[in-house]
């Protein structure tokens, strides 16, 4: 009986040593996001780190987009947090694109945007239901049109 206990204890300790989990770093997320963006050319990355909140807190970035370019926005969530990120692209007050389509309830890890006007645009990131989260957004260039 004592031997079984010792064996079990030894097994638990051993599995504790071998089954090690690693937290995902921002660089890891950028790499994963790069894979999601596939063959598009990397332009910028954005790190989103938000606490829980109601209404859901928002992190905002501005970018210049150029006419005649197809851009790709990719998002990647850290598995260490509950939050699933939503990206929304705005031009002043107009919602132009999003990774979460409310009507279908569908999430997209990446979306493309055919830009027809050079200017400043705003990226709004938040986590669904205001859960805490860590995510990376990637802006890349797909092609010129």
């Amino acid at each position: 009986m004592k031997n079984i206990f010792l064996f079990s204890l030894f097994s638990i300790i051993l599995s504790g040593w071998t089954v090690t989990t690693y937290a995902q770093s921002e660089d890891d997320l950028i790499e994963i996001c790069g894979m999601i963006a596939q063959d598009a050319t990397f332009l910028k990355d954005f790190t989103i780190r938000l606490d829980a909140g109601d209404p859901p807190p928002i992190q905002r970035f501005s970018v210049i987009l150029k006419k005649g370019i197809k851009y790709r926005f990719s998002v990647c969530n850290s598995n260490d947090y509950e939050g699933r990120v939503i990206l929304q692209l705005f031009d002043n007050n107009r919602l132009l694109a999003t990774t979460y389509v409310v009507a279908s309830g569908k999430d997209y890890p990446s979306i493309d945007y055919d830009c027809s006007k050079t200017g400043a645009y705003h990226l709004f990131f938040n986590f669904k239901e205001g859960k805490p989260g860590l995510a990376v957004g990637l802006l890349s260039l797909v092609e010129t049109m």
Binding site: K67, K70, L89, D91, R94, L96, A97, V101, Y108, S110, I111, D112, Y113, D114, C115, S116, K117, T118, G119
Partner: peptide
């Protein structure tokens, strides 16, 4: 000068593309 139009979402082969409809 700018003319504004609503963007058009198009899903093809699982890729969602928003086509901007503004004119500069």
């Amino acid at each position: 000068t700018y003319e504004y139009g609503d963007p058009i979402p198009v899903e093809k082969d699982g890729v969602l593309t928003f086509k901007q409809n503004d004119t500069q």
